[in-house]
Design a protein around this nucleic acid. Structure first.
Lengths: 215, 215
DNA sequence: TGCTCCCTCATACCTTCGTATAGTCGGCCC
DNA sequence: GGGCCGACTATACGAAGGTATGAGGGAGCA
């Protein structure tokens, strides 16, 4: 048993590259290519196999053949977005055309490689995709943490927070909500505490990332 | 003289589509196509001709042949971005390939049409491009107005604004800047006035869009 | 030299914020 | 019924914010 492997195990936190291609030879080639630069790889022969797999919660990307057994890669890309899987996608194609490329790129594909591709091109695309996913995950995590805190607020606390971060004074909020000023102060104080906002400036920024004023 | 044309003249505020293609027939075809849906069109035979033209300050987009007399359309696209011309670009190509398409899309092209294209495809692309430019211009205008106000602040006012929007109390700002609290209050007050910020919440949001805390 | 602008500070006064203490009321769960 | 929570209110007080008045010093400019 590898004791050192337990702590900060790179196999746990290392990025994962998912590969979907019905051609086993391609999957194996990508597997060895990507492993050679220290990436974890997980291959699938079909879109449905990928969907039934458990995705690790680490930076990752998806390499996808545009021509898949069941659905087209383009449709599958759409489906992923609908399912909330925001992983960067790199397409591969043996015989693609320009309209197909444009559709994929407009739908948010990060790259589009024609087979056969140069190993270095794929590695560049993957490392760029992993970087994109890292920053994407970081910002998602930040806003979802704020959302979690916000969800612990009571209705009144949320209302007060909205008015306060809009710039209203306590007495104005009180008038808007037909309350006494002291009640507003109570809600305001507990909203600050629950949101872990040390200052009003913090609360305003949280309200911004929650979109409390844009809707 | 058309009197009605003077007020809210559509020829003044209507979107403009710029077309760069060395083929006069293409330019004329696009010209009549786009004019038929009420768009203003301005055609050029070369990239340099476009660059020496005066651009109207209205929503617009650029239709560009990927193969231009002097430089490649791709390089020209880069040059535009470098020059601060953030207009959405639609590429046309007679004999493009996928790598070229990918490069263009990654560089921010909005669409990439192969000649011959269907009129409706071009109209769709253009109307989408105009919409993109509209929202782009709106957000640019908003932030540049804030920037203008910010530029009227004195050095001290800017410093105080930074600290205050970070959430520091006046006395803490005073300590950071080795000032008395009353001086901080003065600078804070005039910063609020110059920025036209009625409340601290407003100032915090302005600081956000100025990027005062992200750098 | 006089003027303007920026920066600095003090005193004074009022407003707003934040919290502690204390109490009422209604709904929900065991 | 008792306990808990959310909502509401009052009094009170110290801390922080905001502005007005007054004033001095230094840099730059006509």
């Amino acid at each position: 048993m590898d004791h050192a492997g337990r702590i900060g195990d790179p196999s746990i936190s290392a990025p994962v590259v998912y590969v979907i291609d019905d051609d086993l030879a391609i999957r194996e080639a990508l597997d060895s290519l990507l492993r050679s630069v220290g990436l974890r790889v997980s291959g699938f022969g079909s879109a449905s196999a990928f969907l039934s797999a458990t995705l690790a919660d680490v930076p990752s990307c998806l390499i996808l053949d545009i021509r898949l057994p069941e659905v087209s890669g383009l449709d599958f890309q759409m489906r992923l977005q609908g399912a909330g899987i925001a992983m960067p996608v790199i397409f591969m194609t043996g015989h693609g055309d320009i309209p197909m490329t444009v559709r994929a790129m407009k739908a948010g594909a990060l790259d589009f490689l024609t087979k056969p591709f140069r190993d270095q091109d794929m590695l560049d695309a993957v490392s760029r995709a992993i970087e994109v996913d890292k920053t994407q995950r970081a910002s998602t995590r930040a806003t979802s943490q704020i959302k979690e805190l916000y969800d612990t607020l009571t209705l009144r606390e949320k209302e007060v927070m909205t008015f306060v971060t809009k710039g209203l004074m306590n007495k104005q909020v009180a008038a808007e909500m037909s309350l006494s000023e002291i009640t507003v102060k109570i809600h305001r104080g507990s909203a600050m505490r629950k949101m872990s906002a040390r200052t009003l400036a913090d609360l305003v920024r949280m309200a911004e990332s929650l979109g409390l004023h844009s809707d």
